[in-house]
Simulated scan of single mutants.
Amino acid sequence: MRLDKFLADTTDLTRSLATKAVKQGRVLVNGEKPKSASAKVDESDEVTLDGEVLTLESGFRYFIMNKPLGHVCTHRDSTHPLVFDLLDGVVNRMDLHTVGRLDMDTTGLLLITDDGQWSHHLTSPKHHQPKTYRAWLAEDLRTDAEEKLAKGIVLEDDPEPTKPAQLERVTEREVLLTIHEGRYHQVRRMFAALGNHVEKLHREKMGCMQLDPALKEGEFRPLTDDEIDALAHG
Results as ranks from 00 to 15, higher is better:
169 R>S: 01
203 R>M: 04
189 R>T: 01
181 E>P: 02
230 A>M: 10
108 G>I: 11
230 A>P: 00
83 V>H: 00
18 A>T: 11
80 H>L: 05
105 D>C: 03
86 L>F: 00
44 S>I: 11
89 G>T: 04
69 L>W: 14
17 L>M: 08
38 S>H: 15
116 G>F: 00
213 P>K: 02
17 L>P: 10
139 E>S: 07
187 V>G: 05
144 D>S: 01
51 G>S: 15
131 K>A: 11
17 L>F: 15
66 N>L: 07
206 M>G: 13
203 R>N: 09
36 S>M: 08
111 L>M: 15
17 L>Q: 14
205 K>F: 06
45 D>R: 09
69 L>G: 03
57 E>Y: 06
180 H>A: 05
52 E>K: 15
189 R>V: 05
117 Q>N: 14
13 L>T: 09
145 A>L: 01
44 S>F: 10
104 M>P: 00
186 Q>I: 01
22 V>R: 02
136 W>D: 06
42 D>N: 07
54 L>Q: 14
146 E>C: 06
196 N>Q: 08
181 E>N: 05
7 L>N: 06
170 V>W: 12
26 R>L: 08
15 R>L: 00
65 M>C: 00
6 F>M: 11
90 V>D: 00
98 T>H: 08
229 D>C: 12
123 T>P: 11
57 E>C: 04
41 V>P: 06
152 G>F: 09
182 G>W: 01
214 A>S: 10
124 S>Q: 11
176 L>E: 05
216 K>V: 07
166 Q>E: 09
132 T>Q: 03
232 A>R: 14
234 G>A: 14
155 L>N: 06
